[in-house]
Computed example of a mutant assay.
Amino acid sequence: MNLRKHILDTLAGVAVLLTATACNGVFDGIYDEVPATPTVTEGQLLVDATSWKDWYYVDFDSLRTYIEQKDTAGLLKAQTRFAHFPIPTTLSGGAGDGQTGIYTYWFDVFGKGISVNEKRSFTPADAQEEPPSWSIAFHRNNVRTNGGAVLETNYKSMSELPKSSIDFLGATFQPDEWSENEVWTDQSQMLQSLIGCQGIKINKVLSTWLRLDIPPMPPAFTMNSHVFIIRMKNGNYAAVQLENYMNAEGAKCWLTINYKYPY
């Protein structure tokens, strides 16, 4: 019985391990090598969102400044390198707010899939650190905004968009929402199909541009190439579209994003 349980636990661990390597190379240096010369054009971002441990931040206003100053070198750097901060997993002091922290969930990898899951424990942690100025942030297939809201359109290219965001003034934009089981960060209990997840607000509309499903094995990715409109908290608008979720070497969760700002 113990041998059988060990085998089942090992298989479960392999399944979750495959989930991890699908977006973040546990075998670093084989799957997730950084391209020597990233290829992006003006109006694009290339975001390495493979890390389980970090959020990566984009500031559209900074990108706009580089364009206005015609600083080509600065713009390329801003399009491919981003401020990043680790996900806190411990509480530095006090009792916490009872909500911010790491939620451990069991996922039904071998049954009905990861959409079936159960909360097992909670560990309080510090709030997520952020840069002074940012517009959107990325963690694997998760996206959040800085107090903004998002609308999914039916347009499939940036060229199809209306000339002005005024066409969307009457539309319903969805703000970020609390999540306890979507931002996977702790792999330490993978052998039991348990994943530690950050409790944090994400934009569940914008995050639909890249969906991960288990089963099948290996995990299946589905990309939604619709254009999304982001309404910033300052009233400005941006249009974004996921063009690709793999880099030139085939590593997943390398996001090539078309953007238009201000829109």
Rank of each mutant, 00 (worst) to 15 (best):
N203I: 05
R144A: 00
P219L: 01
Q79T: 12
C23P: 01
A220E: 14
N236Y: 07
V34C: 02
D54E: 15
W184K: 07
Q192T: 10
T65G: 07
R211Q: 15
A22C: 11
I136M: 06
V109S: 01
E152A: 13
W55E: 00
A15R: 00
P218M: 11
D176M: 01
L210R: 02
R120I: 15
T90I: 15
A22G: 11
C23D: 04
I230Q: 04
E33T: 12
K201F: 03
I202H: 00
L191W: 09
A239L: 03
K112I: 03
C23E: 02
R64P: 04
R231H: 07
M223N: 03
R231T: 03
G94D: 08
L242M: 08
Y66M: 07
L63V: 06
D167T: 08
P124K: 04
L3A: 15
L8H: 08
N2E: 13
S62P: 00
T208E: 05
G94T: 11
V150G: 01
E243S: 12
P124Q: 03
W106T: 08
Y31V: 11
V205L: 10
C23F: 10
E68Y: 08
P88W: 08
Y105C: 13
G25A: 12
H84R: 15
R211K: 15
A127Q: 15
L17M: 11
N2I: 13
W55A: 06
A220P: 10
L242P: 00
L76R: 10
R4V: 15
P162A: 08
I195A: 06
W209F: 10
G170N: 15
V116D: 15
P38M: 08
N181V: 03
W106H: 14
Q99D: 10
V40N: 04
K112W: 12
Y66E: 05
A238Y: 03
A251K: 05
Y263D: 10
P38S: 12
D32F: 08
R211S: 13
R64K: 14
R81N: 11
Q198Y: 07
K5N: 10
Y105T: 09
D167W: 07
G13T: 06
Y103S: 11
R64Q: 13
I166Y: 11
Y245E: 06
K53T: 07
I102L: 09
A15F: 02
Y237H: 13
T145K: 02
I195T: 03
G98M: 09
R81D: 13
L194W: 05
S133P: 05
E160P: 07
T172G: 04
Y237K: 01
V150I: 12
G101S: 08
A49Q: 06
S225P: 07
Q174V: 06
N234C: 11
V116E: 09
E68D: 14
I166P: 00
K112P: 01
Y103E: 12
S133K: 14
E249V: 09
G148N: 05
N141V: 09
D97Y: 11
L17Y: 14
N244F: 06
G235Y: 10
